[in-house]
Design a protein around this nucleic acid. Structure first.
Lengths: 144, 144
DNA sequence: TCCGTTGTAACTATAATGATTACATCGAGA
DNA sequence: TCTCGATGTAATCATTATAGTTACAACGGA
């Protein structure tokens, strides 16, 4: 199947870099760490900006977190870059046959279950702050 | 972003139909309730068969559940039709810069968090059996 | 044997993703 | 003020998953 795009992991990567070295974070620098094109980085930063997570000074730039590291959760980042129209990650086929007892009711029953499952996932994401994640990165790298 | 395909909801639809009226379940009949092409149905039934959830008699057909209704959970169905190579729904960008403290460690840290979130979702799916779901369908439709 | 059904292959259209080039614009510093 | 480095964004392209459709071989009960 189709997974989530790598936008999400890249967004977390970007925010971690900003948290650790706010000075030198140009899109070129970040792109080198992520190993992709600077435009990809700028696009994702644009989403993070729109979500109010970072502030960017145009021109000779500079990107800063707009909240504290412990105020940003993985759910915030997820919502910033992986937004479906209504937020539901589970698709349900529509326009089923209304004269069939299953076709008439499958959508509402199925959706209810999926909302519960998705909520469970999002709660997990909401429990992890960027602060925790960055401190784990520091541990692993030993330095910095 | 990209949602899960509608294969999943269609698979649940198919299994519900089989549970309710095992006799008349040809792919044409099911396709009419789902409102799609019979080939789509046959493809999905093929996946359910491969997962050991149903048994199909070729030729002048007939499709039957291979387990009890209360032995099949929404997680079983999910795994039958929405399988990613390694089962992970969250993608992580790879080949990051190993000389960067973030690039070198982001993948393992990120993956750990995502596995937890995904597990929470799958546990929810595992708690719902087809039996429950079908009984809710019956309630809603009043009849059958 | 006949006919309805399944099992698949092949093809098309659509959409999301990721990469890339190009360029207008901004703003700090010389 | 002018230059230069950086951002913001449009446009294009290749790749991939999904969904729909046609076509046809093969199966098996009546």
């Amino acid at each position: 199947m189709k997974k989530f795009s790598s936008r999400y992991s890249i967004a977390v990567h970007i925010l971690s870099l900003i948290a650790l070295s706010p000075a030198s974070c140009t899109s070129d620098f970040i792109a080198e760490s992520v190993n992709t094109n600077p435009v990809i980085i700028r696009r994702i930063i644009g989403m993070l900006k729109k979500a109010g997570l970072v502030h960017v000074r145009p021109g000779t730039g500079g990107t800063y977190l707009q909240k504290g590291l412990d105020e940003i959760t993985l759910l915030d980042v997820y919502r910033a870059v992986e937004v479906a129209d209504n937020g539901n990650i589970f698709n349900c086929h529509e326009e089923t046959n209304p004269r069939c007892p299953v076709g008439a009711n499958i959508e509402s029953v199925f959706r209810t279950k999926m909302v519960q499952a998705q909520s469970a996932m999002e709660q997990e994401l909401d429990h992890v702050t960027l602060k925790q994640l960055v401190s784990e990165l520091k541990e692993k790298s030993g330095s910095i």
